Amino acid sequence: MKAQYPKKIIYHLMVGGLAVLLLYPVIWLLMSSFKVSEQIFITADSLIPNPFVFSNYVQGWEGFGDYGFGVFIKNTMIFVLLVLLGHLLSCSLIAFGFARLQFVGRRFWFAIMIMTLMLPYEVVMIPQYIIFAQLDWLNSLKPLVVPAYFGHPFFIFLLVQFIRTIPRELDEAAIIDGCNIFSVYTRIILPLIVPALATTAIFTFYWTWDNLLGPVLYLNSPSKYTVSMALNMFLSNETVSNWGAMFAMSIVSLIPVFVIFFIFQRYVVEGISTSGLKG
């Protein structure tokens, strides 16, 4: 046992050093949010603000014109919740169909669905924009939210692999007891894939909260801007960029991300680690 102590000490020192290295950008961002904007990059090698100011948070929260930063957070939360609901409903239902139902071309359509993961967003960006423009959906959340209700290939694949770990005998027993296919989905499968659904929800939250390209393409009114667009507005090519306010609001925008992760991190690990197993 004594021989293992040096190894444990070295291991924890290495892990702790790596954690500090990875967290340093976040720490630098936090400390810089308390610096005067003009001194942020002049004193970039120093973490300690001098002087220590809170005005960046006040200026950042005031937002732009008639719209405070709280408006952008509210818009982002609505955007995230709608997309989250769409992914949970559509992806779980489609994954159940691929994992449990027998229909003509099931493997073919599953392969096609997986192949869409290889398509860069830039390939479909222009065709989608043309379609949504013809539908008169521009400057609204529809182009950003409606596609979520038709599934996401990554989450469908994740849920399919998770559902395959559930014994089919449970489905058969439920059918014998009088359940139809939809009841099997709602009463048997959904309660058993909660870890995978939690993983889907967490990744959807992260990707949607940080999404900048989609809102930039489809949203034109400042009253509908998301957090990522609002942060970009602090930067200007014509006047002086307000780096301090942007860093301050970046810290504010990171709070929901950290809270969600620390609350549901065990579901992320469980959902990913068991989705590749087949029982």
Rank of each mutant, 00 (worst) to 15 (best):
M1C: 06
K2M: 09
K2D: 10
A3R: 15
A3N: 12
A3W: 11
Q4N: 09
K7C: 00
K7Y: 07
K8R: 15
Y11C: 04
Y11S: 06
V15W: 02
G16A: 14
A19C: 13
A19I: 13
L21D: 07
L22Q: 11
Y24R: 10
V26G: 07
I27N: 12
I27Q: 11
W28E: 04
W28V: 00
L29W: 13
M31N: 11
S33Q: 12
F34L: 10
K35V: 05
V36W: 00
E38Q: 14
E38D: 15
F41S: 13
I42M: 11
T43H: 14
S46G: 00
L47C: 12
I48C: 00
P49H: 08
P51M: 07
Y57F: 15
V58L: 15
W61P: 08
W61Q: 11
W61K: 12
Y67P: 00
G68F: 03
F69K: 08
V71G: 02
T76I: 02
I78E: 08
F79Q: 02
V80N: 05
L82D: 02
S92G: 13
L93F: 15
A95D: 02
G97T: 13
R100M: 05
Q102E: 15
F103Q: 08
R106M: 05
R106K: 15
R106F: 09
R107H: 14
R107P: 02
F110T: 04
F110W: 07
F110G: 09
I112F: 07
I112K: 00
M115L: 14
T116W: 04
L117Y: 06
M118Q: 11
P120E: 03
P120Y: 06
Y121T: 00
Y121D: 07
I126F: 12
P127L: 02
Y129W: 12
I130K: 07
A133D: 13
D136H: 14
N139R: 08
N139H: 02
S140F: 10
S140K: 03
S140T: 14
P143R: 11
L144F: 01
G151F: 01
H152A: 01
F154A: 05
F154Q: 01
F154M: 05
F157V: 02
L159P: 01
Q161S: 15
Q161W: 03
F162S: 09
R168V: 13
A174G: 05
A174E: 06
I175W: 11
D177S: 10
D177A: 06
D177F: 04
G178A: 07
C179V: 00
I181G: 02
I188W: 02
I188H: 06
I189N: 06
V194D: 01
L197D: 03
T199N: 05
T208V: 11
L212P: 03
L213I: 15
P215Y: 04
V216F: 13
K224W: 03
Y225I: 00
V227K: 03
V227T: 08
V227P: 09
S228A: 15
M229H: 04
M229D: 04
N237M: 13
N237P: 15
E238F: 13
N242L: 09
N242Y: 04
W243H: 09
W243T: 02
G244A: 06
A245D: 06
M249E: 11
S253F: 06
S253I: 08
I255M: 12
V257I: 14
I260K: 04
F262G: 13
F264W: 11
F264H: 06
F264S: 03
Q265G: 04
Q265C: 07
V268Q: 10
V268M: 15
V269Y: 09
I272G: 10
T274N: 15
L277A: 11
